[in-house]
Amino acid sequence: MDAEFINSYRNPQLSGNWFLDLNPLSKMNIIIILAFIPVFYPSWQVSIGATLFYILLAVTSGRFKNFISPFLKLGLVIGPFFFILRAIFWPGDTTIFNFGIINITQEGVDLGIRYGTIMLVVTAVLVLLSVTIKAQSLTYALEKIGVPHTASFIILSSLQTIIDLKNKANVIMDSQKSRGIETEGNVFTRVRAFIPVLTPLFLGAISEAEEKSIAMDARAFGSDNSHSHLKFLRSVPVWEKLLVVIINLAVISLIIWRFVG
Rank of each mutant, 00 (worst) to 15 (best):
A205Q: 07
I155H: 05
G146T: 02
I31Q: 07
D110C: 02
G112H: 04
L22F: 13
I256W: 05
T132G: 11
L249F: 12
I78Y: 03
V77F: 15
K65I: 13
I30Q: 02
A169V: 02
I162A: 14
E182F: 00
S8R: 13
L129T: 01
L230H: 09
N7I: 10
R63M: 13
I55D: 02
F5Q: 06
G79K: 00
I118K: 01
D224P: 01
T51V: 07
N167G: 06
V125F: 06
I32A: 07
Y9T: 03
K73V: 14
I163F: 11
M173P: 02
F67N: 02
G180Q: 11
L22W: 11
S158E: 01
F81N: 05
V260Y: 12
F202G: 13
M119E: 08
E182C: 04
I145S: 11
I246G: 05
A124R: 00
M216E: 03
P12C: 13
F19W: 07
G261R: 10
A58Y: 00
F83L: 14
H229S: 15
P42W: 07
E143K: 10
A215W: 01
I88W: 07
N23F: 03
S228L: 15
A205M: 13
L22K: 09
Q45L: 14
I172E: 08
P148R: 11
N7L: 12
L85I: 15
F97T: 08
I102K: 00
L201M: 07
W44V: 05
L22N: 03
D224E: 14
D93G: 12
P12E: 11
R219G: 11
M28T: 13
D164K: 14
M1C: 08
G185D: 10
I145M: 10
T139V: 15
G116E: 04
V127W: 00
V236G: 02
Y41C: 07
S175C: 14
L156T: 05
